[in-house]
Amino acid sequence: MADNGQLEVSVWRGDSGSGRFESFRVPAEDNQTVLDVVSWIQQNLAGDLAYRFACRVGMCGSCAMTVNGTPRWTCRTHVKKVARNNRLTIAPLANLPVIRDLATDMDPFFARWIGAGGRFVPQRTRDDPVAPVRPDSPGRQAADAGIECINCGVCHAACDTVAASPDYLGPAPLQRAWTLVNDERHGARGAVLAAVSGAGGCHNCHSMGNCTAHCPKELDPLRAIAGLKRATFLGAFGKEI
């Protein structure tokens, strides 16, 4: 166990191919996030430590890492909440290639957003009047449930299906697909359903709910994917969206 007032922090150094955990001693503070700890190490002990962050307030989604085995947004994870015996183990996000140290390559994650038909297709131009969407319409409410996603990749790292099948689109892209299916302004709603019903699509999901249990924004990708399963199932019997 580390000394009082000190944290014993193991940090992954290396890339996908090889690497090891390196130990650092970091002064414990009353108010300290995991990202503060990583920054302190980089500023004082290991200037070449690679990691990623931007907003530090839980908006940009760039700071996710594996903390004591669990994927988390580090800028809003209090050390006191996760440290065991003043120890922290910090590794890069799982299910993604590691560029170096704590920085993962997010390209495969974002490629899945495109794969799930996640690109918005407008039906109007900037010269047309804004499309009216009633806030209390069921579609708007269903879309609302998923639009606060910050693309942090925590759910992607927590999902065992992503880990087991490289083709699986994963929780966040599928949740994005569900918001677009429910967005009456979207010009390619049928194409979204086609994109998510093939190999690697929503029917791969085992409803184990790791995604929902870990999403720092308390979103519910599991529920969104269930919506896609329902829509594609009913679609097979000719029901239009």
Binding site: N68, G69, T70, P71, A158, D160, H206, S207, M208, G209, N210, T212, A213, H214, L222
Partner: peptide
């Protein structure tokens, strides 16, 4: 037990 699996829905799945 990997910590990210420690919740009821995962046990139900298994």
């Amino acid at each position: 037990m990997r910590p990210h699996r420690n919740h009821p829905l995962w046990f139900a799945f298994v």
